[in-house]
Design a protein around this nucleic acid. Structure first.
Length: 584
RNA sequence: GCCGAAGUAGCUCAGCGGUAGAGCAACUCUUUCGUAAAGAGUAGGUCGUGGGUUCAAAUCCCACCUUCGGCUCCA
């Protein structure tokens, strides 16, 4: 079977399994109401309205029932039906009935599928296998249950969604399960604890991670690196307080949209809010004195934390938090300078991402939703202009991108950089946002060459996005084995006995002179145990120091992941290390 | 916020109406060791928090907090 046919077939298998799932659930719960059941990556799901929650045992039973249905064998038959027939068939299925009515309104052809006439009908446009023999009953597994709103709308009823994994062969299913187990091992929440990078406290609260010394060190290294790069590109560091009067956001437009997601701070009779973003503050630095066209572009930058009252159910690990640190920059410029500035931003972006080892990413051009213009500030003309400028830059630079309507910020279009993590999830990290609206709302001006007042354009940009989330993604990307320049501990020094301690201290002094981060393990433990622990901590270099090294003046080096050791001079080791650091 | 699952020692987990358990980690002692776990001992818990039921609650019920899987949202 060629690849194309194989892909078609697995889609068909997954789609058919969704129907089989619905049939099995109806058999067990005859009163269940059916939602929809599409194919997704690696499997399928189906939504049901049930009278009680499902237990893992229920899931196993349903899975068994599905196997029974497949093993008994069936053919899938499609049949076009009239609106009246469809309404009659689904008279006890309110969600299906709703879909039938939607389709009638859209004048769509109604098709039903069934395995045996009279037993089980499902509303469906097709795309199945023809015969149950095409489905391997051992190559699927119902793997989780979750709630989901009918039609994905928050106001609608919450249905029970059953997820399944499905492949053509059991081998593929098993390797997928192994992959999931692997992914779990590199889950940043687990590694964060094991490598002692960050923690959480019930007393501090949800979505407010605390960084331990090692995690804080990684933050510092990243911030230093990004800070230096910003300086190189002409950004000036600014500083703003973390609270403000609400008026600031009433002017910017954020208040109207996000006031329920802000943390409110009271001091006596005064009311403040914690800043949920930095751009309005930065506009006030721009506005603090008159600006000439000769000053532009003006580029402000700082790494600072914002606070957003994210929905409690959304919080988790470092990837969605309420205290979000951004490497945030705002550039104020003239329209004619946009292309050059965005080009430089794209350059910075690729420098930062390749420095930390991300090469698999793509750009999403996030546009306004043309069907819901009320959600955005500004007029059509401005939006069309802004969106065209961004698309043209990407086209001119021959950067591949996908447009996404409805993903823009409420003040302007964005270039969002999407990367993939080890769990296959896509994350937005960097963002570059073109904003013609906010400068206008804040009445920002500069004087042009004719002595006339003009409104500048503003570009918002962040490359790591959120430091917390970025570190979370990095932890998973490297499975905790950070490259040398990011590793909180770069060298572990293991002493074999107490007699060599003085020699160890001597080595540490030399390594410290080179600003290397060293940890001495002189505990009264066996060498095997010390090595095991240093390896589990994923420390890049392990030096074993005993009598042999002391008398020869050499060191014994074990590189992360490599069992064979090298015995070399300390100078040589230091030289290699600094070469590697520079390369990174 | 919504649907569901869960919270017992630092970590992983057992106990599921009758005065709280294991392994690893920690600490002490012995051992001073050559490339992924030395041995013995000691200590450690208002069983997430607060209410309730009961002669008796880690165990049953309620509320809240936190975590996890999804949904929705994301400046």
């Amino acid at each position: 079977m060629d690849k194309r046919r194989s892909e078609l077939n697995i889609e068909g298998v997954r789609h058919t399994l969704a129907h089989v799932l619905a049939e099995a659930v109806l058999k067990k719960f005859p009163k269940a109401k059916l939602g929809i059941g599409p194919v997704i990556e690696s499997g399928f799901y189906y939504d049901f309205l049930l009278l009680r929650p499902l237990s893992p045992d229920d899931l196993k039973e349903i899975e068994g029932e599905m196997r029974g249905i497949i093993k008994r064998g069936f053919k899938i038959v499609g049949k076009k039906v009239t609106p009246a027939e469809a309404k009659k068939l689904f008279k006890d299925q309110p969600f299906k009935l709703e879909l039938v009515k939607d389709f009638i309104k859209e004048k769509k052809q109604l098709t039903v599928y069934y395995t045996e006439p009279g037993v089980f009908y499902d509303l469906c446009k097709g795309g199945h296998v023809k015969n149950s023999s095409e489905i391997n009953p051992d190559a699927f597994k119902l793997n989780k249950v979750a709630g989901a709103y009918w039609k994905g709308i928050e106001k609608n009823k919450m249905l029970t969604r059953i997820y399944g994994l499905a492949f053509e062969t059991k081998k593929e299913l098993d390797s997928h399960l192994t992959m999931l187990a692997e992914a779990e091992k590199r889950d940043h929440r687990r590694l964060g604890r094991e490598l002692d990078l960050f923690t959480q406290s019930d007393l501090v609260g949800a979505g407010l991670p605390l960084f331990t010394p090692k995690g804080a060190l990684i933050r510092e290294i990243l911030e230093d690196y990004v800070g230096k790069l910003n300086k190189k590109y002409g950004y000036q560091k600014v500083w703003i307080p973390h609270i403000t009067k609400p008026e600031l956001y009433k002017v910017s437009g954020h208040w109207e949209k996000f006031k329920d997601d802000l943390f409110h701070v009271k001091g006596g009779t005064d009311e403040f809010v914690l800043k949920p973003m930095n751009c309005p503050h930065h506009t006030q630095i721009y506005a603090s004195r008159p600006r000439s066209y000769k000053d532009l572009p003006i580029k402000y930058f700082e790494t600072t934390t914002v606070y957003r009252n994210e929905q409690s159910g959304e919080l988790g690990g470092l990837t969605r938090v309420r205290s979000i640190t951004q490497d945030d920059g705002h550039t104020f410029l003239r329209e004619g300078q946009i292309e050059e500035e965005i080009s430089r931003m794209l350059e910075m972006q690729s420098k930062i991402l390749s420095a930390v080892g991300f090469n698999d990413y793509w750009i999403r051009l996030s546009l306004r939703n043309p069907k819901n213009k009320k959600m955005y500030l500004g007029d059509d003309k401005t939006w069309d202009k802004a969106q065209k400028i961004m698309a043209d830059i990407l086209k001119k630079k021959k950067i591949e991108f996908k447009s996404a309507e409805g993903e823009a910020a409420f003040y302007g279009p964005k270039m969002d950089l999407m990367i993939r993590d080890s769990l296959g999830r896509e994350w937005q990290v960097s963002t570059i946002q073109l904003d013609f609206n906010m400068p206008y709302r804040f009445s920002l001006t500069y004087t042009d060459e004719n002595g006339e007042k003009q409104t500048p354009v503003m570009i918002h940009r962040a490359f790591m996005g959120s430091t917390e989330r970025f570190i979370g993604i990095l932890i998973e990307h490297f499975a905790g084995a950070f490259p040398l320049w990011l590793a909180p501990v770069q060298v572990a020094l293991l002493s074999i006995n107490d007699k060599v301690k003085e020699y160890c201290l001597q080595i540490i002094r030399e390594l410290h002179k080179e600003n290397l981060r060293v940890w001495l393990d002189d505990r009264n433990e066996t060498l095997g145990k010390k090595i095991r622990e240093a390896e589990l901590q994923k420390i890049p270099y392990i030096l074993v120091i005993g009598e042999k090294e002391k008398s020869s003046g050499l060191i014994n080096v074990r590189e992360r992941g490599i069992k064979e050791q090298k015995t070399i001079k300390l100078d040589e080791f230091i030289k290699n290390m600094s070469l590697k650091e520079k390369a990174a």
